[in-house]
Amino acid sequence: MNQNVFWILLSAMIVNNFTLMMFLGLCPFMGVSSRVGTAVRMGLANIFVLTITAICAWFLHNFVLPYAPYLRLISFIVVIASMVQITEMAIKKLSPALFRQLGIFLPLITTNCAILGMALWQTTKYDYTLIQGLFYAVGAGLGLTLALVLMASIRENTELSDVPSLAKGTALTLIIAASLSLAFMGFSGLGSAS
């Protein structure tokens, strides 16, 4: 059981990295990855929302959705939107400084496909228990943070280097992301051997 949970965490974080291997959460990956500091904070906010969503999704999946399966999508998105709203209000109250730093990116977590994708995969594809789901969410959040921080550190360095003017901006970011993704492909099959 313990090893099982550990593999779920590792798999969501590295082997099936949400951003680089499954293309979820690309908007913050492209938008918030220009500074390492912002990237870390964004990652932490995501981990928090992911964890709460995982708990809510598990409750919905086990106690509500058996009676109304067609409501899955709608109920999940409502839960995510309200969780983000609550997080926003809590941060605003408890730490106004952090609130100002996160700015517009906090409400945008609602439309981060990683959150909804995690909730959907957790319940429909894998059918995890609550504990497994929690580890899955934390692993996914750590994976997002890892990808964001890696990308931000590379982008901070490319700012100073001499790249062709055509490639400046998104094209360069995407090609860097391709090489990061290639590197993460090396991890595939990591869990299957054991």
């Binding site: 094209a171 995407l174 391709a178 492909m185």
Partner: peptide, 24 residues
Amino acid sequence: VMILPPGGFLTLGFLLLVLAWVER
């Protein structure tokens, strides 16, 4: 590799490059 995840990033990156080149 083009139908695996890295290919997606690479294809979009190069499409954007080509578009920027045509535009210029």
